[in-house]
């Protein structure tokens, strides 16, 4: 299944936040969206999963979601959004309940997804026992448990310290190599964008327009931080965004 964004514009009252956005998230493809703060990245992501309606334009699902998908468009949130009173097992079972699955079905799915994400040892831990990185791993496992067609990731690593971020990025790359999921990955971190994105959509400051779509034609696992091509790409993106970020920073909020 693909997700196509067609002529999407959005206003908050008189304030335009997004203007004429067009791009497609293909199967097994990670599309990173970057842009200065307040450019409407998160609003765009909320629309992709149907949590908000665009003022104009539409978001289209193209093709069928994978067989057995319980929730084709599934979010991974910046602040994890785990229920603190439920264990890792319980947090994953939460999103499987109410779909008419039997208890054994639910348990097999949980066992399976915990194995795939290498979290089996943490099944009965509760969130307050887990580090930030582990919480986000659990949230990713929860998202994978429903067999999504497209993962919608809202700055998933932004709440983590830089070392944990590095570890999780490697995890995500490994996971993608095994699972080949499609994702829309919102971030303000250019390094994440060049390491994880097959394509990088650069948005301008408010109202957000697509400034450029950069294709990165390099396998994810080869993208080493020391690779000059990666460094060059990151520098190019920064050159593109510097002015916008500077202007956005000096803007008064209304």
């Amino acid at each position: 299944m693909q997700l196509r964004i067609e002529n999407v514009s959005h206003d908050y009252g008189p304030l335009p936040v997004l203007s004429d956005i067009n791009f497609t998230i293909g199967e097994g493809e990670i599309v990173c969206v970057i842009g200065p703060s307040g450019c409407g990245k998160s609003t765009l992501l909320r629309m992709l999963g149907g949590l908000e309606k665009p003022t104009r334009g539409q978001i289209l699902e193209v093709g069928k979601p994978p067989e057995g998908s319980l929730n084709p468009l599934t979010y991974v949130f910046q602040d994890f959004a785990l229920l603190p009173w439920r264990s890792v097992h319980g947090n994953i079972s939460l999103v499987l309940e109410g779909h008419g699955l039997s208890k054994t079905d639910i348990d097999t799915r949980i066992k399976d997804v915990l194995e795939r994400t290498r979290l089996s040892d943490f099944e009965s831990a509760i969130p307050k026992q887990l580090s930030g990185g582990m919480k986000q791993r659990v949230a990713i496992a929860r998202a994978l448990a429903v067999d999504p067609a497209v993962l919608l990731m809202d700055e998933p690593l932004s709440a983590l310290d830089s070392q944990t971020r590095e570890l999780l990025m490697a995890d995500l790359i490994g996971l993608w190599e095994r699972e080949r999921f499609a994702a829309c990955y919102i971030t303000h971190n250019l390094n994440e964008a060049v390491r994880l994105g097959h394509r990088v959509v650069v948005l301008s400051r408010r109202p957000g327009k697509v400034r450029e779509i950069v294709e990165i034609d390099m396998p994810l696992e080869d993208r080493d931080m020391t690779d000059p091509r990666i460094a060059k790409l990151q520098q190019d993106l920064w050159d593109m965004m510097r002015e916008e970020a500077l202007d956005a920073d000096r803007e008064l909020t209304t």
Partner: peptide, 21 residues
Amino acid sequence: RTLIRMGQSFGLSRWHIIRKI
């Protein structure tokens, strides 16, 4: 609110969200 939004984003029913979240 992020927990409620999480529930909605996974397609949980309103009753499920009330009772479990």
